[in-house]
Design a protein around this nucleic acid. Structure first.
Lengths: 268, 268
DNA sequence: ATAATAGTGTCTCTCAGACACTATACC
DNA sequence: GGTATAGTGTCTGAGAGACACTATTAT
């Protein structure tokens, strides 16, 4: 779990003039947790990857139980009493996407009254970012599939447009807007590429996230000056063609240098 | 409630090939909401105002019951089963701050295991912005008082530093960072001023939020070109001094023109 | 008049965008 | 050689920062 706000140890400072009445220890020993009505709390995760020619891709699962049985939804789970929200999100990624050590961040909490037909369910939405190649390996039917999100936020699966269960379409839209908004002021996006990438690949990533073309010269200068990336000295290798004519997508021209994400600056 | 993500009607599209088994209606009629363990869900609100000479101010309440009895905390409440999260936040502002029609936005959801000693409580934190004058009217002891937040995030009440109950100090810190982050790309901040203000007052507000001095000329140009404000043609009136010498804080020099927040651009 | 603040005009520096040019690959 | 992509050098226009100057008030 990365880049969540720092947790500070909870402190319960008591006033010097202790008010009269039973002690806090006695209060806690006799506390009845059912005094206030409790709610179901769920976590749903939008696992995102990016393809330059498609746009955003999100992991979707097909619901095999009521409600909305048969519909597509974001992977999610109910939060257990002994796990934190972040742990629940990680558990979803582990169980339904076989994915660990990805960038995960809390997105927004959805609490409309009628968002789940069963009962009142509060859902804390998370989003996570992985590389396109890892996303494509996750397709393990029948419970897991990859949805392709075209803008403006039409969700397609293998070409045909679908509606997600519950309010998961809104969650997905919010996640994409969050990623786009963070791109300008945050070194986000490197989780979506491999550990080595060319400047043009990075530019294509930014163009896909922002939904518009960027100026090549300016993008190069800005990225090199930002300190977010560093050159490796290596050059991108070409696919070796074993005889026959080259495929239509064969790369041409001078090979590009490979860069990697620079380590964050020392806070000292 | 303003500028929350748009709610879209929840849709539960069912696959054409309906899986076998009981119908969704029959499932919902027999659903047992206690099948998954439920959690307590609370809402806490950081109501913020800004004073040019102090910095951020936040409404704090003194806890009159266990746990953390006697400690200062953000106003909050448990979420009722028949109200949305936004409604709960508005109820907190109405009941504990006698405030309505303010800018309110969801902040972050805190779900650590031990954040409340009673039982497992998930807290959805909100923040709200009001004018300094309205904040100062809210001081109605003994349950309501105004805390003054100095940076870096030391919380003072009438000069002496305090620690807030639970993880409310972290919530307050997160709220201030959110307001600061939104200042650059969003027309935020006008909720913190009256309906008429001078350019210098607006600059002081931005300087307080950002924690650094801004260039006067550049700030004027940027604000006037942004379309976020419009001139009223009125001039700021001076306090009338009824005899005697002028107070030390008397305003001097040419009176400034008053501006107001411009209406948002027509989406057509 | 002097002091103090509001507001304007203009210069410079920085950076994004555009374009020309060189470098290195495959054909 | 031609063509396509990678990378560099330089010009230009927009905007931020700095500074000088004018405008309007109170004392």
């Amino acid at each position: 779990m990365a880049r969540l706000p720092k947790a500070t140890p909870g402190s319960r400072r008591i006033s010097p003039r202790m008010p009269s009445g039973p002690s806090e220890e006695a209060f806690l020993a006799s506390y009845d947790p059912t005094k206030f009505e409790r709610l179901s709390v769920a976590v749903d995760v939008a696992l995102l990857a990016l393809d330059p020619s498609i746009g955003f891709m999100s992991l979707l699962v097909r619901r095999d139980a009521h409600p909305a049985k048969g519909a597509w939804s974001l992977p999610g789970t109910f939060v257990r009493p002994r796990e934190s929200l972040d742990e629940a999100a990680k558990r979803v990624l582990r169980d339904k996407a076989e994915t660990e050590d990805v960038y995960v961040e809390q997105l927004y909490t959805f609490g409309a009254l009628d968002r789940d037909p069963r009962t009142r369910v509060i859902s804390v939405a998370y989003y996570a970012l992985i590389q396109r190649e890892l996303m494509l390996q996750l397709v393990t039917p029948p419970t897991v599939d990859v949805g392709r999100v075209h803008e403006p936020f039409a969700i397609r699966i293998r070409g045909s447009q679908v509606e997600l269960a519950f309010d998961h379409g809104e969650m997905l839209q919010t996640a994409i807007l969050r990623v786009r908004g963070k791109l300008d002021y945050s070194p986000i996006g490197y989780e979506l590429l491999g550990d080595r990438f060319t400047l043009f690949e990075l530019q294509q990533l930014h163009e896909t996230i922002l939904g518009r073309k960027l100026n090549k010269d300016s993008f190069r200068r800005r990225m090199l000056a930002s300190g977010q990336i560093e050159p490796t000295g290596e050059l991108k290798e070409r696919a070796v063609v074993l005889g026959g004519s080259a495929p239509a997508t064969m790369e041409l021209g001078r090979p590009a240098e490979l860069y990697r994400a620079a380590p964050p600056p020392r806070p000292g």
